[in-house]
Measured scan of single mutants.
Amino acid sequence: MATGGRRGAAAAPLLVAVAALLLGAAGHLYPGEVCPGMDIRNNLTRLHELENCSVIEGHLQILLMFKTRPEDFRDLSFPKLIMITDYLLLFRVYGLESLKDLFPNLTVIRGSRLFFNYALVIFEMVHLKELGLYNLMNITRGSVRIEKNNELCYLATIDWSRILDSVEDNYIVLNKDDNEECGDICPGTAKGKTNCPATVINGQFVERCWTHSHCQKVCPTICKSHGCTAEGLCCHSECLGNCSQPDDPTKCVACRNFYLDGRCVETCPPPYYHFQDWRCVNFSFCQDLHHKCKNSRRQGCHQYVIHNNKCIPECPSGYTMNSSNLLCTPCLGPCPKVCHLLEGEKTIDSVTSAQELRGCTVINGSLIINIRGGNNLAAELEANLGLIEEISGYLKIRRSYALVSLSFFRKLRLIRGETLEIGNYSFYALDNQNLRQLWDWSKHNLTITQGKLFFHYNPKLCLSEIHKMEEVSGTKGRQERNDIALKTNGDQASCENELLKFSYIRTSFDKI
């Protein structure tokens, strides 16, 4: 039985969820670079991206490699990797027998973001014989899940209580170790020597080791999670996991709180800001991140802002960003909400898709409305799209047979046209069989910064309504002859009103 693990408890099935942008060198404390989270699957090609990484700022997932063999891993080693800020997950990587050479110096898994409450997941690794993470000293947050690894031993010899604050939620089941077939031998045991430290858990006094050649490092209890030197002297209180010299914040392997210019500090002093819960960055760093993602459509890219001495992905609820200094300031009234469309555009074809934009005031991208039916549609669209004030790209209304009016965009005031449909149009209306009105132009103002209007096959939309939009939106004169079809717009509506004058002759039985 794995020490510190839980057996036999019912657990939810383990679901495996399925960018080499360097964020800056980590400095003297770390020998390499800070790398983003990685999802490495199918083959070993991307694994080489770990070569210079000291910190993975995010998670590391290595999974679904069915053609790899043990010899493929023999020359692979990433000794610079010290810390993973989120979680480490391995799933069905064939041929991998140990992690001792792959990650010989991995010391800390912070667990800032977890995989279903777990910071370390080893699942269905069919050839893994031992973990071998002999320098792993601290899992700051989260638990361990090690399950269905039929060859995995050296679990009962690990004292997880020396690595985690609590072992109650560890789930370590259905491994070879369960069948008591392992016969784990710690260093020196074969020669009758006791080389590794022994600890007591559940009444068992057991030597602690990761492999037959690597003991588990056990520091004096007084050192807590700070770690200790090879001689057993406690590291500085700002260290986490390990250090090369005692009581020196510049000799830590990793930091308990924050890293700044080669030393570990309790908090980031001005003019620095907390970033990702582990390091200090200056304003320029946060500003660069903001600008890199301002026009990016890459998933996970955030326009970072500053709030409460932190550089964070977005302002919290009730705050909006001051564009001059990136500071989050309290909103006066309802907060603006910028919604970034991942692929640059979004099609609204149902109430469900409209709900995804609920509360958005600025759309960074283009909207395509293609709704053919739905219950209580006008009210639903207004509830979900009615706060949109600005669209950076274009607005396209296409084959939306259920629409009679666009009044559900009740606050839309600006279409920038930074991206144009077919390279020309910022407003595009095609084949809307029941569209009769755009907006009530006596109450609604709309500016279209650039781009043209396109109207074709809107049989109940009168040309007068379209011409009014040209005047109000500032697009009059931009359109070419064929942009607004004269014969297919309003051709099934009563669009022309003329005053009919009647004269009559009164007659009676005795007068003409």
Rank of each mutant, 00 (worst) to 15 (best):
I222E: 14
N179Q: 08
P269Y: 06
D159F: 00
N257D: 03
L44Q: 04
D178Q: 13
V55R: 00
L164G: 15
Y94C: 12
L88S: 01
S225I: 12
G58I: 00
C335I: 04
L327E: 13
P104R: 01
P197E: 06
L64V: 09
S324Y: 03
C196P: 11
P197K: 10
H226M: 09
P330L: 08
E97H: 07
D159A: 06
I312P: 07
E147F: 09
P270M: 04
D261K: 11
Q204V: 08
T199L: 11
N170D: 08
K224Y: 15
N170I: 08
L114M: 05
L81C: 01
L89P: 00
W160C: 02
L90W: 03
N295P: 03
L44Y: 08
L102V: 13
L90E: 00
I222W: 15
T68W: 13
I146W: 00
A198E: 15
L29T: 14
T68M: 13
I163K: 02
N175K: 14
R256D: 05
C228Q: 03
C239Y: 00
R141L: 07
M137R: 10
N135E: 05
N135I: 00
K129D: 03
P79I: 03
T199I: 07
N195K: 10
Q276E: 14
G300I: 13
P79E: 08
L50F: 05
T189K: 04
L88K: 00
D159W: 15
N308C: 02
I82W: 13
F285T: 08
F66T: 05
F275N: 01
I82Y: 15
T320M: 08
N179R: 14
L63I: 04
D101S: 15
V305C: 08
M38S: 02
S77T: 13
L233E: 13
D86T: 02
C235G: 01
A198H: 14
I306H: 02
L29D: 00
D39C: 15
G188P: 09
D288F: 06
I109D: 00
N202E: 08
I158L: 12
T194R: 08
N202V: 04
F258P: 00
R162D: 08
W278T: 13
F283P: 09
K191F: 14
T199P: 08
E97A: 09
P220R: 04
R263L: 11
C280V: 00
N170E: 05
E130N: 09
K148V: 06
R92A: 14
M137Q: 13
N202Y: 12
V144R: 01
T85P: 00
Q299L: 06
H290F: 14
R256S: 07
L260A: 08
Y30R: 01
Q287A: 15
M137T: 09
L63H: 10
T199W: 11
L88W: 00
I158H: 07
T85D: 01
M83Q: 07
K292S: 06
R110V: 04
L327I: 10
R141Q: 15
L240R: 05
R41Y: 00
F258D: 01
Y87S: 02
A119C: 03
Q299W: 03
T329C: 04
K193V: 03
F66I: 15
L106Y: 00
G32Q: 15
L131Q: 02
P79Y: 03
N42H: 09
L155W: 11
I163F: 12
R92V: 02
L155K: 08
C243V: 00
E151S: 05
N175Q: 08
L332T: 03
P70D: 14
D178R: 07
N105G: 09
L47V: 04
L99S: 01
Y319W: 15
A156L: 04
G300S: 09
H59D: 02
T267F: 15
N135M: 15
Y87R: 00
G333I: 03
L76E: 01
P31Q: 04
N175P: 13
D39T: 08
T157P: 08
D184S: 11
E57P: 00
R145L: 11
S324Q: 08
D184L: 13
H290S: 07
N175M: 06
L81I: 00
K224L: 10
S296G: 11
I56A: 00
C53K: 00
F258W: 08
T250G: 08
L136Q: 05
V200K: 03
F116W: 14
I146D: 01
H48A: 05
R74P: 01
W160E: 01
C209R: 08
N43Q: 11
I82M: 14
R113W: 05
R297W: 06
F283T: 09
C219R: 04
G111V: 00
F91L: 04
Q299H: 13
Y259S: 04
E124K: 06
S317Q: 15
Y30I: 01
C328H: 01
L332F: 15
P270H: 09
N202P: 09
L240F: 04
H28V: 07
S213F: 00
N42I: 05
H290G: 07
G188V: 07
L155P: 05
S213T: 05
H214I: 07
T320W: 09
K148I: 01
G318W: 10
P336E: 08
D288W: 05
G111F: 00
D165L: 10
W210Q: 08
N43L: 05
D86P: 00
M65R: 02
P36Q: 11
R256Y: 08
D184K: 14
A119S: 10
I146Q: 03
S213C: 14
F78K: 02
N117T: 03
S112F: 04
V108T: 13
L240H: 14
G300Y: 05
A119F: 01
L102P: 01
D169A: 06
G227N: 04
Y134N: 05
C328G: 02
F275C: 02
